[in-house]
């Protein structure tokens, strides 16, 4: 089975501070890590490969230093790392990111199964997985907490819900985004680390993946961040007093006013 795991390099949330003047993340001097959800996607890909055989390719769009997370992924059992990196990708929103990753998946020969994290801890949109599935015209399930069964042309999974889970069967090729409950990621092994040190990370440019210039980076992004800020808390706060009965009476009266 050909498995592609999409991995994003993100700033380590433990050390991120908000610049109080500009209200943007101050990333300076902050260590980059593998997006925590993606560690679980990777573990699922690697353990699936160990079970049914095949190959795990890890894919990331990002600056040259994103190579680090791909090496880390190889130390954790991935076979190959592919970095899609080009100045032209800068400023990509989730739409342009999904398009770019889709082109990259095609460029590396496609996949039977694509695994993504549920969301990235910096962007937090949870849109890239579904976006990528859309671009590739593949079925997908988000928030997968368990892979129940895999056969040559179908996969059965559990989708986490607020009050339990759904069991979903979908044909392959397909895409899944995973939640942390799905597994406990392994620690990179010694042999894996040695392999990762020597591994060659394939770097693909916009031209290499045949991406259209108007679909990538800032140009290809229909959304743009106008302002990043912490919202001022607003809305009125009322404190009722008196006996519980009196408080309830006041509350009911208050609510009636809105009806």
């Amino acid at each position: 089975m050909n498995i592609v795991v999409c991995i994003k390099q993100v700033p380590d949330a433990k050390n991120v501070r908000l610049d109080p003047k500009t209200n943007t993340l101050s990333r300076e001097g902050v260590e980059s890590i593998m997006n925590p959800f993606d560690r679980h996607a990777l573990e699922e890909g690697v353990s699936l490969k160990e079970k049914v055989g095949g190959k795990v390719t890890v894919l990331s769009m990002g600056p040259p230093q994103a190579e680090d997370v791909l090496r880390e992924a190889i130390a954790c059992g991935a076979d190959e790392g592919v970095l899609v990196s080009d100045r032209a990708f800068a400023g990509a929103d989730t739409w342009a990111t999904s398009y770019t990753l889709a082109k990259a998946v095609e460029a590396v020969g496609g996949a039977d199964l694509i695994l993504c994290g549920k969301q990235a801890i910096d962007g937090d949109t949870a849109q890239v997985g579904p976006g990528l599935a859309f671009q590739l015209n593949r079925p997908y399930v988000t928030c997968v907490q368990k892979i129940r069964d895999v056969s040559e042309n179908a996969i059965q999974v559990e989708r986490m819900m607020d009050d339990g889970y759904d069991v979903v069967q979908l044909p392959l090729p397909a895409l899944l985004t995973v939640v942390k409950d799905i597994n406990e990621p392994r620690v990179p092994s010694l042999k894996g680390k040695m392999k990762a040190k020597k591994a060659e990370i394939k770097v693909l440019s916009a031209a290499d993946i045949g991406a259209e210039a108007e679909c990538i980076g800032l140009t290809g992004s229909p959304t743009q961040v106008a302002k990043v800020f912490s919202p001022e808390p607003h809305g009125e706060r009322r404190v009722f007093s008196g006996s519980p009965e009196e408080q309830i009476e006041q509350l009911v009266k208050e609510i009636r006013g809105y009806l």
Binding site: R186, V187, P188, S189, L190, K191, G192
Partner: peptide, 20 residues
Amino acid sequence: KDIAKADLFSIFVPEEYGGL
């Protein structure tokens, strides 16, 4: 089992027998 997955059991076994 986690320790085994990380290859630590192989540390003191000679290379000819699959160790480090």
